[in-house]
């Protein structure tokens, strides 16, 4: 088991190197020069050259890449061109809202998707199944910014239950933070519940007809227990996969929702970095997200072995 995790970690490093190379060269391919952008229209070519030199932007690309890798290896993802702070620090400052947003959204998506998927499979073909399938289709196709605006209009503006936007004052309590996070989490939870519903339904349908489920019924245990313990217990592996995938997507892709709700998260950071060609921040953020993707995958692998004894050897 430990050897297996070790092998996976080595593979993970290789993947991260490839991702690093990819994001480094791709960001440089985009037209635009951060020094020129920073200094504005009035800047002289000499000023721009001086700034480029200060950030090492005048060096050959390959050398820049090697220097950046060396910095990454020390855990420091480089220096932001605009923010006057190291990228790692900038990321960590924005990590909290993004992290909580992703976790709450996942929790809401799972709380909707798993029971809906189970019910839909148990009552396959009945009205409840049709209703769930219809709603899931709807949820999957709602643009998150649109749902976000509706939620803000309704629950923040009209009813005043939640703040309209932002993340509260810097010294806000955890409860206030929760209030700020609720609506964006609900939006992402609803949108992401569709995929979880479908996976849960499909994976439950696979096991509900299984022979061991019939054995469980033959034991005389209640139908609820048959469904939850015997069927659901065996449907978990694909469901965990889709939960992990959803979490990874949420961490990397909550940009639109963060923007709509004015949350100072990683998504926001990346958007402004892209606009200003702040290479180190773009690279660092993408690399960090890639690393989290890979780690989530590794975690899913480990969880498999916990829920399915057959994977254990």
């Amino acid at each position: 088991m430990l050897a297996h995790i070790g092998r996976r970690l080595a593979g993970l490093l290789l993947v991260l190197f490839l991702v690093a190379a990819l994001v480094f060269f791709l960001t440089r391919l985009a037209p635009g020069d951060p020094a020129a952008l920073m200094l504005g229209d009035q800047a002289t070519p000499e000023d721009v050259a001086r700034l480029r030199e200060a950030y090492g932007l005048d060096k050959p690309l390959l050398l820049q890449f090697v220097l950046w890798l060396k910095e990454c290896a020390t855990g420091n993802l480089g220096q932001s061109i605009f923010l006057q702070q190291p990228v790692t620090q900038a990321l960590l400052q924005r990590a909290e809202p993004t992290f909580f947003l992703a976790m709450f959204s996942l929790a809401i998506a799972a709380a909707i998707g798993i029971p809906a998927g189970i019910a839909s499979a148990v009552w396959r073909g009945r009205p409840i199944d049709q209703a769930v399938s219809g709603l899931a289709m709807l949820a999957a196709n709602i643009p998150s910014f649109w749902l976000g605006l509706i939620f803000i209009q309704l629950f923040a503006v009209r009813f005043g239950w939640f703040p309209v936007a932002g993340y509260g004052a810097p010294d806000a309590s955890f409860f206030e933070r929760l209030q700020h996070l609720f609506l964006p989490s609900a939006v992402l939870g609803v949108v992401n519940s569709a995929l979880i519903t479908r996976f849960t339904r499909a994976s439950m349908l696979d096991v509900l007809d299984a022979d061991f489920v019939r054995t469980a019924r033959a034991k005389g245990i209640s139908e609820l227990r048959v469904v939850l313990r015997h069927a659901f217990g065996n449907a978990l592996v694909p469901i965990i996969t889709v939960l992990g995938l959803t979490l990874a997507l949420l961490i990397g892709g909550a940009i639109v929702t963060e923007t709509v709700f004015g949350l100072p998260g990683v998504g926001n950071l990346v958007v402004s970095a892209v606009l200003r060609r702040d290479y180190p921040v773009i690279q660092g953020a993408l690399l960090a997200v890639a690393a989290i993707y890979a780690l989530i995958n590794l975690a899913i692998d480990v969880i498999y072995t916990l829920v399915d004894p057959r994977v254990r050897q």
């Binding site: 022979d211 061991f212 054995t215 033959a218 005389g220 245990i221 004894p309």
Partner: peptide, 24 residues
């Protein structure tokens, strides 16, 4: 029927390879 099954009437099936729950 639920109270009877497993208690007063029990059943064994044809497929021993698939009739037991793999995760218990």
């Amino acid at each position: 029927m639920q109270a009877l099954r497993g208690a007063e009437i029990a059943m064994i099936f044809q497929e021993p390879m698939t009739s037991l729950n793999p995760v218990l």
